[in-house]
């Protein structure tokens, strides 16, 4: 009778996956930029995760859930919110846009003013993919480079260069906005 196994599996799944709900929801909000889409994507993510829980071999639950969420977001939602802003991160593109270029002009004494969370979330939301995703996984979800690489299915080197560009772009946007508001 499979009933008992199912229940035990569901219980193990509950204990392993539900504590990460806020993390998964946070990533969904940044990827989809819409609260109700994010809710639907997270629910679908947990359904799929439960379905594939038997094949889960670790090591870490969070990157595994994130990887599933990414698939859900790509497949079901096409990340439509920011498709238009995606940038290729091929080596060629990286050469054309050196990672340090955006911030080179800033004098070293310039200090970012603290802003409210809403304003910073907007700046992050405006980042192009795949840089935003890498940035959120590192700065907000606190994943290690290796875990990010696992979640997004890219080599660690790619993660590092995306992160460098994401930070450069965010800082540039931030400075530009401060300049504007002066």
């Amino acid at each position: 009778m499979p009933a008992n196994d199912d229940l035990q599996k569901a219980q193990r799944f509950r204990e392993a996956a539900l504590p990460h709900l806020d993390d998964v929801y946070t990533l969904a909000r940044y990827l989809l930029r819409d609260a109700s889409d994010a809710e639907d994507a997270v629910q679908e993510c947990y359904l799929r995760a439960l379905k594939h829980f038997d094949s889960y071999r670790g090591p870490a639950m969070k990157p595994w859930l994130f990887a599933i969420l990414r698939n859900v977001c790509n497949a079901e939602y096409g990340r439509r919110a920011h498709r238009h802003s995606a940038i290729e991160d091929t080596p060629g593109a990286a050469e054309q846009t050196p990672i340090w270029q955006e911030t080179e002009a800033s004098p070293e004494t310039e200090v970012l003013r603290s802003r409210d969370a809403g304003a910073i979330r907007k700046l992050i939301d405006a980042l192009a993919e795949p840089f935003k995703e890498t940035f959120v996984l590192r700065e907000i979800s606190n994943l290690s480079y290796r875990e990010i690489a696992e979640a997004v299915g890219a080599p660690v080197g790619t993660v590092m260069s995306r992160l460098a560009r994401a930070r450069a772009m965010l800082r540039a946007a931030w400075m530009a906005e401060e300049e504007h508001s002066k």
């Binding site: 199912d6 229940l7 599996k9 569901a10 799944f13 509950r14 539900l18 709900l21 806020d22 993390d23 998964v24 929801y25 946070t26 909000r29 994010a38 809710e39 997270v42 629910q43 947990y46 359904l47 439960l50 603290s114 802003r115 409210d116 969370a117 910073i120 979330r121 992050i124 700065e139 907000i140």
Partner: peptide, 22 residues
């Protein structure tokens, strides 16, 4: 790091997911 950039999943979502488990 000093800013709370995380979102909190709504209770209704938590309940929906719980309810979808066996």
């Amino acid at each position: 790091a000093d800013t709370n950039l995380r979102y909190t999943a709504p209770t209704s979502l938590r309940i929906r997911i719980e309810a979808s488990l066996p």
